[in-house]
Amino acid sequence: MITRVVTVQNAEGLHMRPADKLVRTATNYQCQIELERAGQVADCRSMIGLLTLGAPQGTQLTLRAQGPDADLAIEAITRLFDSQFDDP
């Protein structure tokens, strides 16, 4: 299992469009990917799960991946957070 801490940097937080991008990215990989916020865990392929985290700008989330391509998935998803989901 690979773990990394990511931060929601974009102004609007983890709302509909960023979550959409996360789900689309996660579905490209075979591994299990989760995001955790203060004990609440969301499957990265579940839009509802991600929204339920209710993560506004500045929230730190723990990203976890387990499976054959876990390292690639972690990289791709970290990039999404760092690029602020290409969200202004």
Binding site: R17, A19, D20, R45, S46, M47, I48, G49
Partner: peptide, 11 residues
């Protein structure tokens, strides 16, 4: 597009 993801949500 995001609403489509809600529709397809595995849960």
């Amino acid at each position: 597009s995001a609403q489509q993801q809600l529709l397809l949500d595995p849960h």
